[in-house]
Structures are given as C-alpha cells and as structure tokens.
Amino acid sequence: MTARRETFFLPYSAGTGEWRQRGQDEGRCNLWQIIPDIHGDNDRLERSLAMAKDARSAFLGDFIDASEKVTAPDDAAVLRRIRTLVENEGAVAVMGNHELNAILYHRRGTDGHPLRKRSDKNAAQHASFLARFGTETPEALDWTDWFLTLPLWLDLGGLRLVHACWSDPHVALVAERRPDARLQAEDLEEIAQESSAFGRAVKTLVSGPEAQLPAGASFLDFGRHRREEVRLAWWRSDARTWRGAVLSVPDPSELPDALLPGDIQATIYPDDAAPVLVGHYKMAGLPELEAANAACLDYPSSPCVYHWRGEPQLLGSNLLIL
C-alpha cells in the first residue's frame, strides 16, 4: 500500500505562527469523532466507530501494543482498519508514543544498534505487535514506515489534536524544521538520543511533560518505587500547586503543598487557548472534562469518544462513553 500524505488542515506556519485551513476542504465536515488510544483492541475500535454516525474519525495515536487486559489483541486488524480509514475514507490520525517507539525499535542508528533498546521491558510493552509482525521484518518496517506519515499534531480548524501534550513552544520548535508536523528518517537518531531541543520537544508532544520535584521531595508510585519526578496534568489550567498539577501519584499529600515554579507553571495550558484533546495518560474512573478547553480521553476502564461540532469550548454532553 502506498501511504497518502493528505492533511485536511495545514498544521502550522513556522514563519507566521498561524494555523491555516486548506480552502478546498472548508465546510467539508461539520462533525468529528475523536477516538483515543486503541492499543490493539479491535473490539474497542469497532465499538468506537459504531458511534460515529455521520462523523469523520480523528485518531489520537497509540493504535498498537495491547495491554494484558485486552483478551484478544489484534494489532494487524486495528492497523488495517485505521489505515484504510485514513487513506480512503477521510479520517485523520496523529502519531502516538507507541508508534514512535515502534519506529525506533525496528530501525538502527549509524552505529548499527537499534534506536530503541530491545530490552525485556521494551519487548514486553511491544509484545502484541512483535507477536504478529516480528522484529525488523518487512511487514514491521512497512507499518513503521506508515507511522512516519502521521503528523505529530493536527488542527481541525478550531480543535487541536496531539497524542500527549500541546505546548506552543515545543510545537513551534518542531515546526521550524517540520512545518507539516511529520518526522523524517534523518530525525530519528537525535529523537532516540534526546540529544537536542528538537528531539526533546518531539518526546514531550508524544509522551507528555515531567518535572523534577523540589530538593528532598519524593513519592511512592503505584509499584512502591520512590520517585523524584512527576508527570504533569498540563491541561489543568487552574493548577497552581504541585499537588494539583500531577498525575499518577497515589498519595498527593506526599508532595509539597507549594506553588509551582514559574518555569513549570508556564507548561500549564492557558484557559483562553483553543480547545485540545489528547490520549496517552490511562486515566482512572469515569471520563470527565477537567477544563473547558483541554481534556484527556484515554480512560481504559471506561472507553470514550468525543464528538466535536465546532464548539469553541468542550462540552460534557459531547463526551460519550462506549
């Protein structure tokens, strides 16, 4: 299959900082269904698509690498379905961190070594893809070639999509080199090494921001490992303290009840920015909108989709549980 690189909305103009829509596509779609992480769960994919009705689908990445909770993982079926929708039926999709990890896992650097270590941990995370396609096989390389055609972010003319984090400085930095938001093979080694501002910006967009806690502060994670870095819920525009801005901390009272430093506060998404939807974070509980203009849709135990009709602020009534 030859991948088609059509994008309905030009992602970013590095020169002007403006978002531009292709004139030929204006008014073509009044309803988008935003679908978060599928992770090899074909049943979840088909249930999500069944809710689309007349909506065009927009995928938030992480199509592959099923968890142990997926009873019948089928990365191949998921990928074939999504690729067909993107190439032939007007759907769009952004790259997730699992797609980027797969690209790196199956390619080698100039030193001849894989760009992503093939450790037991990394292989386990990639198990359902490896079971179907193998390592560095022609099929694996074909699919990861297709992953490289996916943009890191999209703007649907009023709604922003990115897998893990929308950060204007990081988007602008990547767009200086790749204004269409698509990576090239020559970018991969510095991304794998996180050896440049460009590489680190790409990782932030697909994996989200983390922050070092103040000196002496730490917490026990869900695996009872003590950590000194935290993941940030950057979409919580009202977050002002460490306890209010973190994710995946079992007991936030372990953290300082102190204001965020200015550089970290600057990563919080402004409450007057365009609405943005992300996946990635494996949120617990029932899906909810934590801000009027930014939300995570990745709730593995209560899968959901969002129907966007052009509203300038996100609406709870458009957040639909499968």
Rank of each mutant, 00 (worst) to 15 (best):
S253N: 10
D257R: 09
L297Y: 04
A52C: 03
A295P: 15
T204S: 11
P256T: 02
A14N: 00
A273Y: 07
S167M: 08
V202D: 11
G15S: 11
F129D: 00
P73L: 01
L322R: 10
I38W: 00
L319E: 10
A181D: 06
A127E: 08
K53V: 03
P114I: 14
P209W: 03
R240P: 03
A292W: 09
F147Q: 01
A66Y: 00
L183N: 09
V70A: 00
S67L: 00
W32N: 03
E176N: 07
D272F: 01
D43A: 11
A273Q: 12
F8H: 13
D111K: 11
D257L: 05
V94K: 06
V278T: 15
W146A: 00
K117F: 01
L259N: 09
D41M: 02
E288V: 13
D142F: 09
G109I: 10
L322S: 10
M95S: 04
L213H: 06
A217M: 02
L286N: 13
R56P: 04
A127P: 00
F129W: 05
S253E: 15
R177F: 02
E176I: 04
N97A: 03
E139S: 09
R227Q: 14
D257I: 01
C304T: 09
A258M: 05
N318D: 15
R20V: 14
K53Y: 03
K53S: 06
L319F: 13
H163P: 13
L255E: 04
F219D: 08
R132H: 07
T135I: 14
A123F: 08
A185R: 15
A295M: 11
D74P: 06
S13T: 11
A77Q: 14
M283D: 04
I191W: 07
A294M: 11
D298H: 06
A3F: 14
E6A: 04
P214H: 04
S218T: 05
D168Q: 15
A131M: 06
R20M: 12
R226V: 09
L314C: 04
R200W: 07
A294E: 10
W19G: 06
L297I: 03
A233Q: 10
R243M: 11
P303E: 03
P214D: 01
L183A: 10
S195M: 11
L220H: 05
A76E: 15
L277Q: 02
E89S: 12
A76P: 03
E194S: 15
E190M: 10
N30G: 14
Y281Q: 05
S167Y: 10
R22I: 06
Q184I: 09
T137N: 08
V162W: 09
T204V: 15
A77L: 11
T2N: 14
R83D: 07
G244W: 07
A274P: 11
E6Y: 07
T71F: 01
A295S: 14
L232T: 02
E229S: 12
A72K: 15
H225P: 01
C165R: 14
D221G: 03
P179L: 04
F63S: 00
A72N: 13
T137Q: 04
W166L: 13
G316A: 14
L10V: 12
A14D: 01
A201H: 09
D62H: 02
S207K: 12
H106R: 05
T137V: 06
L115N: 09
R240F: 05
T204M: 15
L314Y: 09
P250V: 01
E176Y: 02
R20K: 14
V206W: 07
D187C: 04
